[in-house]
Simulated assay, not measured.
Amino acid sequence: MDAFDVLSAGAAAAPLLAGWSAHMLWMRQRLTRARMDALTGLPARELFTHFARRDLRGLERVAVLVVDLDGFKAVNDRHGHAAGDAVLVAVAGRLRRWAADLDGTAARLGGDEFAATAFTESAAYLPGHLRALEAALSEPVAFRETTLPVGASIGAYSHTRLPRIDLSTALRRADEAMYAAKREGGGWRIADGPIPEMTTTNGRRTGRPGTTPLPGGAR
């Protein structure tokens, strides 16, 4: 085959290659969208797992967070599911901005449960970041002609010592810290001490109780 034949074959194959590349790009975009939460636009559990595992392999200090809304059922019961959706969308946007400012990833695990990763300068800075997140998430949400209360319990786990722990363990520690915050009425807690013995499902504590009421008695 001479040079002319090679060039001719390459020219003939170019449209096929271009079409295949476009198809592969479309497939990748479709798969990514399938792993996004349709309501909030945040990564769902599968995609978050991919990003969070990548973050935990890094050399920087990484915090893993679990966030559970307080009083969310009352919003649905009193104002309807459209109002509940408005709260979820607002919380998702706030968590996304917070995580992005710390080079992390936010996700919706399902229902009113969220997760995030964040890179922190040192352990001393993490409480300040969590206070800022709590304040942001607790801002009321405007919905039609009313404002909806929002509360959140936040659990965080930050690990820097080698060897690195796996994501399931990090989520388990963050989940336990979140539940400690929920028992005390919300806010944030950082996991410390030994890992408690308990069964888990996808890194979450199995069979944990429901949400904490908002101040004022909402359940």
Rank of each mutant, 00 (worst) to 15 (best):
residue 208 R to W: 10
residue 11 A to K: 07
residue 137 L to H: 03
residue 67 V to A: 06
residue 23 H to S: 11
residue 205 R to N: 11
residue 206 T to E: 15
residue 101 D to N: 14
residue 131 R to S: 09
residue 85 D to R: 12
residue 44 A to E: 13
residue 29 Q to T: 10
residue 54 R to I: 06
residue 63 A to G: 15
residue 89 V to F: 01
residue 170 A to W: 00
residue 152 A to P: 08
residue 157 Y to W: 09
residue 38 A to I: 08
residue 193 G to A: 03
residue 171 L to W: 04
residue 89 V to Q: 08
residue 165 I to W: 07
residue 75 V to Y: 00
residue 177 A to S: 03
residue 126 L to Q: 08
residue 131 R to A: 11
residue 7 L to R: 05
residue 159 H to Y: 08
residue 39 L to V: 08
residue 37 D to C: 06
residue 166 D to F: 14
residue 124 A to R: 10
residue 45 R to M: 02
residue 213 P to R: 14
residue 157 Y to D: 15
residue 150 V to G: 13
residue 207 G to N: 12
residue 19 G to Y: 00
residue 201 T to R: 15
residue 28 R to G: 11
residue 171 L to S: 07
residue 181 A to P: 03
residue 183 R to G: 06
residue 126 L to A: 10
residue 155 G to C: 07
residue 143 F to T: 08
residue 142 A to Y: 01
residue 208 R to T: 09
residue 77 D to Y: 06
residue 6 V to T: 08
residue 201 T to S: 15
residue 214 L to E: 02
residue 34 A to N: 11
residue 129 H to R: 15
residue 64 V to A: 05
residue 19 G to W: 00
residue 4 F to L: 15
residue 28 R to E: 15
residue 14 A to Y: 06
residue 176 E to T: 13
residue 46 E to Q: 14
residue 70 D to L: 07
residue 169 T to Q: 11
residue 180 A to N: 06
residue 106 A to N: 03
residue 23 H to Q: 11
residue 49 T to Q: 08
residue 18 A to S: 10
residue 125 Y to N: 15
residue 196 P to A: 03
residue 37 D to F: 04
residue 33 R to K: 08
residue 78 R to G: 07
residue 59 L to C: 11
residue 205 R to P: 10
residue 116 A to T: 00
residue 59 L to M: 14
residue 77 D to F: 06
residue 178 M to A: 03
residue 180 A to I: 02
residue 149 P to I: 09
residue 72 F to H: 09
residue 142 A to R: 12
residue 171 L to E: 07
residue 62 V to E: 14
residue 67 V to E: 07
residue 189 R to T: 01
residue 161 R to C: 05
residue 177 A to F: 00
residue 47 L to P: 12
